[in-house]
């Protein structure tokens, strides 16, 4: 565990906390894409299949449980909670899941570290996570008034990916045999997807104006 990895995990955790805070206290999920949240729930379910098979550390186990529980509860809130679900912007959240799910599954069957069920699911989760933010970015672009929490949420998610890249660079130089093309390429693609958002987020923060994305 290095500092970049820890900082990455913490911003990831922070993004979830920000989202839960918005849902719990403001009882609103305005500007949040249910499609993206459902994709994340699938990502974590597929990746953490090893939760009860391989024990790595207490930290690892707890974090996995937190991400699993939080992603599924967010989906539950957005679909079932009688107040929260009314704030969901269904009309603008039109991205089709299947256009990302199917290609990711095919890619995982073709490109994986080993052709076993768990490894294919692991690769699938890596590919899916890389593009799972797309419905969220599309929704933000269609939202006139992006509230602060929705903006911070996406920013922290992007920061988490960027920090993971630094973590890989660090691990590459400090650990033997640390070459992982699948997670590296998927991680870089994922971070690049945020580039445009980052630009507008940081500009609005520097100029102290409300975040607004060009249509």
């Amino acid at each position: 565990m290095n500092l970049f990895r820890l900082a990455g995990d913490m911003t990831h955790l922070l993004s979830v906390v920000v989202l839960l805070l918005k849902i719990h206290t403001i009882k609103s999920c305005a500007g949040i894409s249910l499609k993206t949240q459902e994709l994340y729930a699938i990502v974590f379910a597929a990746r953490y299949l090893d939760l009860f098979v391989h024990f790595m550390s207490l930290y690892n186990t707890i974090m996995k449980l937190v991400f699993l529980a939080s992603s599924f509860s967010i989906v539950w809130y957005m679909r079932q909670h009688k107040i929260v679900r009314r704030t969901y912007d269904k009309e603008h959240d039109t991205f089709r899941h299947q256009f990302i799910l199917l290609p990711c599954l095919v890619l995982a069957l073709l490109i994986n570290e080993k052709f076993t069920f768990r490894e294919v699911m692991w690769a699938f989760s890596i590919y899916l996570e890389a593009v799972a933010i797309l419905p969220q970015l599309v929704l933000l672009q269609r939202t006139r008034n992006i509230d602060n929490l929705a903006g911070h949420y996406v920013f922290f998610l992007g920061a988490y990916r960027a920090l993971y890249i630094l973590n890989w660079i660090y691990r590459y130089f400090t650990e033997p045999h640390f070459v992982h093309w699948i997670s590296w390429i998927a991680g870089i693609v994922q971070t690049l997807l945020y580039a445009d958002f980052f630009y507008y987020y940081i500009t609005s923060w520097k100029n102290n104006v409300k975040l607004e994305l060009p249509a």
């Binding site: 790595m56 974090m63 991400f67």
Partner: peptide, 10 residues
């Protein structure tokens, strides 16, 4: 798993 494995990441 051996050292240098990225599967320990979240």
């Amino acid at each position: 798993r051996p050292r240098g494995d990225s599967h320990d990441e979240l």
